[in-house]
Amino acid sequence: MTESQGPAHKKDMTRRRVIMAGGAVVAAAGVGAGVVATASAGEEKGAASGAKAGQGEVCYRLTSETTEGPYYIDADKIRKDITEDKEGIPLTLRLKVVDSDTCKPLRKAAVDIWHCDALGIYSGYESMSQGGPGGGAPPSGAPTDAPTDAPTGTPTGTPPSGGPGGGGGHSEPTDDERYLRGTQLTDRHGFVEFTTIFPGWYQGRAVHIHTKVHVGGTMTDAGYEGGHTCHTGQFFFAESAVLDSAKEEPYSTSTTTRTTLTEDTIYDRSGVAGGLLKLSYRKGGMVRGVTGSITMGVDPDETHDGTDL
């Protein structure tokens, strides 16, 4: 399955669960007057609640396994701050990983994230990326995770029709840049936190962040090695937050056609269970920073490396 294939092609994951813990998202105490707090913008409807998991935690069915896309690079940058010198709205990404069967935190799981910069460029693949002012297309024949029938005008809110387009298979890096990529081990409570920037967009995809969760491996001087990948997914952003980001530089300088959340062929419209982040930022002051949070339920005994869909 390529990254452009829709939710109809996804494996049935109904026997697995994910917890959306109140403590794992933006703390209620931090959401007051003058603060924008958004989780779903009406997109949570697909998360069917299950049994109580204690202390206000509710189990949800997991529907968020996705393809890894063409721009993955093995976890070799063990770090919290992945920004390097990239400009953009500061983003603090707070993630919690739990066992989808026991609802307990997973300790020492390696959480890997990667995403494009404010103008849609991926490190390691700068010559292939579709971002940047003008939305330059990749070289002929270069793999891409954008559907070929991507909207060419103002977003209409209607998902694109037609079959999958573009190659979703992995591509070898074309340069040595590694900004906006990093890996960390979860603490005993299952948490990791990354310092990065709010991603931009490129033609054919809504704003998103890729993630993988690895278990059973070890930390070495070269990075995280061994074990297996038990989850491959993507995080998404409410449309209202993306529109707020588009008012700020350098996002506002992009002329790339933007795909909305409802037009995206990867997001399955199940809200938080499908990877939609809880976001918090000062109203009218997004440029000062955004906090994004989510809990991921994974089955550490299974393998989902993004090529099994």
Rank of each mutant, 00 (worst) to 15 (best):
T257P: 13
M20F: 12
P155E: 01
D244T: 03
M128W: 06
E44D: 03
D12K: 14
Y125I: 01
G165C: 14
I113D: 03
C116L: 14
T102P: 03
K104D: 12
E84R: 12
T307G: 07
H170Y: 10
D117T: 12
H9D: 06
P199M: 03
G285K: 01
A37C: 03
L185F: 11
G153D: 09
C116K: 02
T154N: 12
T259M: 03
M219G: 15
V98F: 02
T174N: 09
L180S: 09
T186Q: 11
R288Q: 14
V97Q: 01
G30E: 11
L180C: 04
G163D: 08
A8T: 03
D299N: 11
A53C: 05
G271F: 10
S293G: 07
R288K: 13
K278V: 13
V287L: 09
H214E: 11
H304A: 06
D74F: 03
R17K: 10
L261C: 14
D268L: 09
T220L: 07
H228A: 15
G217V: 04
L95D: 02
D308N: 12
K108W: 12
D81M: 15
D85A: 03
G217C: 11
E177K: 09
R269E: 09
Y60I: 12
E302P: 00
T229W: 00
P138Q: 15
I209T: 11
S240W: 00
T259Y: 00
G136N: 10
P7A: 13
S64D: 04
K45W: 12
D76H: 05
A24C: 07
C103T: 02
K86G: 06
E44N: 04
P70A: 14
G136L: 08
G162P: 08
P138A: 11
D76K: 14
I73A: 11
T291P: 07
V31M: 06
A21M: 02
A21L: 11
H9T: 15
A146Y: 00
E65N: 13
T232Q: 00
H214W: 02
P90G: 03
V97K: 00
R94I: 02
D76S: 07
K283W: 08
R61V: 09
E43L: 08
K80W: 04
G227A: 03
G223H: 00
D175Q: 05
A29Q: 13
L309F: 06
H228V: 02
A27R: 10
T262A: 12
G216L: 06
C116G: 08
L93W: 13
G284S: 15
T307I: 08
S293C: 04
T144C: 10
M13V: 08
P300C: 05
D299L: 11
A24D: 08
V18M: 15
P147M: 04
T307C: 05
L276I: 10
